[in-house]
Amino acid sequence: MTTALIRARGLTKRFGGFTAVDGVDFELNRGEAFGFLGPNGAGKSSTMRMIGCVSPPTAGELTIFGLDPVADGPAIRARLGVVPQEDSLDVELTVRENLLVYGRYFGLPRPVIRERSDRLLEFVQLADRQDDRVEPLSGGLKRRLTIARSLINEPEILLLDEPTTGLDPQARHVVWDRLFRLKQQGVTLVLTTHYMDEAEQLCDRLVVMDAGRIAAEGSPRDLIERYSTPEVLELRFDPAVHENAAEKLAAVPAQRREVLADRVLLYVADGDAALAAVRGLGLDPLTSLVRRSTLEDVFLRLTGRRLED
């Protein structure tokens, strides 16, 4: 018997002639924090919806808790928590009533919901706003309420579709902190993101998706080691000489060279040595930065595109 909580083999989703998810394989174990990383339209949300049993797979195999999402949707959903990409809070209700109504959708008795609501409102730091209406709350507060709501059934797996998209940096850090605590408590997290820092902070393991396919899989560290160099030299030139300088840089020994619209990236083992070599060519960049490789670099390498695009 397999211990995988979620198992996908050749999982495919087509909408008419458009293939959103194109035969992906992955497996997820209990207690893991698993991420789908990719640009918009890579098929992350479609994959999440299939896992959430609100979108039947077109082809391939998918089991969650060993159950079939099409036949056993309600039974699986009873054990999932879902934080959708767009908040779907009940704006006609108060903060607390949102938890009550959502808990009732799971068939939970009112006293149980009341007790859990107390704890969850505390957990997402919304206890003092519990009787406020939802509509005027800020994006960050709504997100936190959505997270609290998704935990009302004490789910074994929490699905988060771009949990911090559209939040200001401070609100993002609060959300990350709460998610990290959940992970510590043993909740299995599955999240999609197009933020590198989010993936690095939260995910034990991730897959990079592009155009409906999985381009690579591994831990953030693994991926960086496998697909990038230890250091990256970022150079910015005067736009007038940018192209010319980029050509000349071919003379600098580097594992890889990326010419972006505004910068040139050199993938090297030793950034400072490479910078010295650049200067030795008589080039004078406006700014230069030596940094460690990140997932962004992995992504660039795998898909030939930057994530913000």
Binding site: G73, P74, A75, V82, S88, Y102, Y105, F106
Partner: peptide, 14 residues
């Protein structure tokens, strides 16, 4: 607009 049913269908509701 309210996406009320989207939220409900993420639970055991059918």
């Amino acid at each position: 607009y309210e996406k009320l049913y989207d939220a409900a269908l993420a639970t055991p509701m059918r």
